[in-house]
Amino acid sequence: MLDVRGLRKIYGGHGREVEALRDLTFTLDPGELVCLVGPSGCGKTTLLKCVAGLLAPTSGEVLLDGSPVTGPRPGMAVVFQEYSRSLFPWMRVRDNVELPLRQKKSLGRQRRHALVEDALEAVGLTASAGAYPWQLSGGMQQRVAIARALAYEPEVLLMDEPFAAVDAQTRAGLEDLVRKLWQERGMTILFVTHDIDEAVYLGQRVLTLSASPTVVQDELKITLPHERDQLESRADARFAELRTHVYAQIRAAGTRPAPTA
C-alpha cells in the first residue's frame, strides 16, 4: 500500500548541511493504522511531508500502490497539527470541507454536498456547518480538519501530531474518533505523534524513530484487543508493558548515537 524505502533528507543551504532523516524504510498494509513515535526534533514532520509529497527527499522513495509519490496525490490527505492555520478563517466550516472536493472535477455538485454532509456527520459537526472555524473550540476545529480529509476520500490518511495542541480530555475524544472512523471506513492511517501513550492506544503497530539523524529504531505490534476503551485499555497490564517497551526504546534512541549508514 504505502512503501517508504531508504528515505533520506538533508537540508542544505547557508554553507551548512543538516541530515534530518538518515535511512527510513517501512511499509503500511492496506487498512492498517500505524503510529510513528519519536523524540522531539527527530524529523517526524519532515518524514510526513516527504510521504505526503510536500517535500522532495534527498534520496530514497515513497510508493503509493506501487507508484512513486513525487507530489501531493489525490489518494492521500493530511491532517496538520496547526488546525487554526490549516483551516481557512474566511470560509465557513462547510466551505472549508468542500473546497478540496471542487478540485475533483469528476464529482458532481450533489455528490460533493453528500460527501460534505457525510463527513461532518461522521465527526459530529453537522450543527456547526454554517459557523466559521474561529467560532469553534480547538477540538472542534481539528474535527473540521478531519472532516475535510474524510470527505476527500483518501486511501491513506496522514496525521501530523494532530492532537498535540488540544487539552487532555478533548484529545481522548479525538483519539476515539480516529479509531471509530478508521474502523468504519477502512482507510490506511499513518499517525505521527510524540506521545507514547497515544501511539500505543491508537495503533496496530508502533514504529519508534531514533533521534536525528533518524532511522527506524524499533517496530512493535500492539497486542491490545481490537476494541479499545480509554479507561480499560489504558488500565490493561499489557498496555503498561507496551508503553514501557516503547519508552525504553525512545530513551535508548536518545542516548545512543544512531548507527552510521
Partner: peptide
C-alpha cells in the same frame, strides 16, 4: 501551513489565487 494545506489537497492555480 495554509500553503501546505492547499498543496496537499491539489488546489489548482485559480483556486489558490481565489481562495
Amino acid at each position: 501551513v495554509t500553503r501546505d494545506t492547499a498543496r496537499s489537497y491539489n488546489l489548482g492555480t485559480w483556486a489558490r489565487v481565489r481562495h
